[in-house]
């Protein structure tokens, strides 16, 4: 088994690069905003991938932590060391959850700004909006 999920990291890299490209190169204000969001998604994917452990188990779905578990399922509870060395890392998931919330609020503010700017300038082109300054 590979030590980490290469495909997942590559996808994250593609997302980040695409997002940066859209943010820096594209003229449409909505495309810029989508690009900004893609970067955030890529970073979230990196965080999730960090939590992966080959052949490990996920604490949240282990059978003896289940609500319907009978006392007999606790009889072969893992030793702490064995559990700690095999469990996947669940802290990044919590971080990703927080970041998704922040990303959503930032996205909504940016979209609201895009609406306001569109109403003012009647164009979606950032170049046209930002020229004629002063």
């Amino acid at each position: 088994m590979e030590p980490f999920q290469v495909g997942s990291f590559l996808t994250a890299g593609v997302l980040i690069v695409t997002g940066l490209w859209a943010l820096l190169m594209m003229d449409n204000i909505l495309k810029k905003i989508i690009g900004a969001n893609l970067i955030g998604d890529g970073v979230n994917l990196v965080l999730i991938t960090i939590g992966y452990r080959p052949g490990g188990f996920i604490p949240e779905v282990m059978h003896h932590f289940h609500a319907t578990a009978t006392p007999s399922s606790y009889s072969h509870l893992l030793e702490f060391g064995e559990f700690a060395s095999n469990a996947s890392y669940s802290l990044p998931f919590a971080l990703v959850l927080t970041n998704i919330v922040i990303g959503a609020s930032t996205l909504s503010v940016m979209l609201a700004l895009a609406v306001v700017l569109y109403n003012k300038y009647h164009t979606l082109s950032v170049h046209k909006m930002f020229e004629g300054e002063d």
Partner: peptide, 10 residues
């Protein structure tokens, strides 16, 4: 150093 967004991006 103008306010242009493209220059800043660059």
């Amino acid at each position: 150093n103008t306010d242009s967004i493209n220059l800043s991006s660059f």
